[in-house]
Design a protein around this nucleic acid. Sequence first.
RNA 1: GCGAGCGUAGCUCAGCUGGUUAGAGCACCGGAUUGUGGAUCCGGGGGUCGUGGGUUCAAGUCCCAUCGCUCGCCCCA
Length: 414
Amino acid sequence: MSKLQPVRGTRDLLPEDCRRHRAIGDTARAIAERYGFGEIVTPIFEFTEVFQRTLGETSDIVTKEMYTFPDRGGEMLTLRPENTAGVARAFISGGLGQMQPLKFFYAGPMFRHERPQKGRLRQFHQIGVELIGVPEPLGDVEVIALGAHILEVLGVLGKTTLEINTLGDAESRNAYRAALLEFLRARRDKLSAESQERLERNPMRVLDSKDEGDRRIVAEAPRNTDYLTPAAAEFFKRVTGGLEALGVRYQINPFLVRGLDYYCHSAFEFTTTELGAQSAVLAGGRYDGLIETMGGPPTPGVGWAAGIERLAMLIAEPAAPARPVAIVPIGPAAEAVALNLAHELRHAGVTVELGYRGNLSKRMKHADKVKARAAIIIGDDELAKNAVMLRDLDSGVQELIERARLIERLAPRT
RNA sequence: GCGAGCGUAGCUCAGCUGGUUAGAGCACCGGAUUGUGGAUCCGGGGGUCGUGGGUUCAAGUCCCAUCGCUCGCCCCA
């Protein structure tokens, strides 16, 4: 660290970046509120256990991607790699079980120790929702519809495809896993080296391998839909039926699996081809077993998370900030007046740019650079008349205005 | 953790097979313009050529190492 530099995989968000991030966070929050989701903010770090127990001891996130460190006193803490576990912990420790169903929206930074690449950082930001206490498939439908709605308003829905799959209930999942394992073991030699490893550790992972050879084999593998219990099949049918009723277009992807252990039934991903090697923009699923796994009462849940940086690469330029009015004083007497005038106008709701130095020409240049819509020029002549010269910087037309009438002229109408 | 590509000014880059004071555009600052911006013209500041070592009479250029960035694998938002 000889040069002062940001930690690998972290970024400074300059005002322009922040506007993009805020446009995403604000619209998502507003739409989520329309669906009855209220914002929750949980700490960005938790006891390591919170993530270890929920994400599964063998998941990649737990085994190699967590920022974990000892607190003074020796407790192990972890910077949150995702927020579902934190929300679930809040549900349990806050005794929120009395108020079900609960509908939460969140936005904030997450941390994963991965190799950075396009659409992937060590500190990144997510928005997400969690619907807790609703075992009905209607919950899945509403949560997915909310995600689609947000993407639509952000103008990126058309760039994505909703892929959906069902992992079924525990019984379905176990039956399918056994069948898949048998099928793959018989073809072990033909699988890629990586998939041979996946085979024992997490056979479902072989399904979404990028290797061509693997894909050919997988295409003939048993389908999960053939192993669903009647109840799980019915559940999935109601989810897809609900999406159809709402006109949310989807594509069933039998190979879609989720990395995290706590998912069941619905697994879904809004994917895009515009993010390099990354495809998921907004992804989630149902996690009925999670809260119980953490030591809480058996409580169903369904939710999703979306990467703000990834969305930021897809959305159009957000609306420009309000153009200011620039105050351009000429001479020391006028400067004193300018300061007061700026103060007054700002309190009246006007965005004001007060140049700090320079002659008339310099200040006008500055006004132009900050994209001012108008300049208020004050010199000795204007001072003598208790007026200002108001110049429209787009048209170049200027007129003398009494000071007393300036605010009514510039203040935003309400 | 693994693989590939790239590190020259604040930004984007040029610098031919190693050759003497390292360049351009944009940006920045000043002037033309001490009551008028956008355009144009003139001038200016700014670089230990990522870092360290090696080869050579001579290295931004070749070799090695190292650090960083980017993209990809794994995995994921």
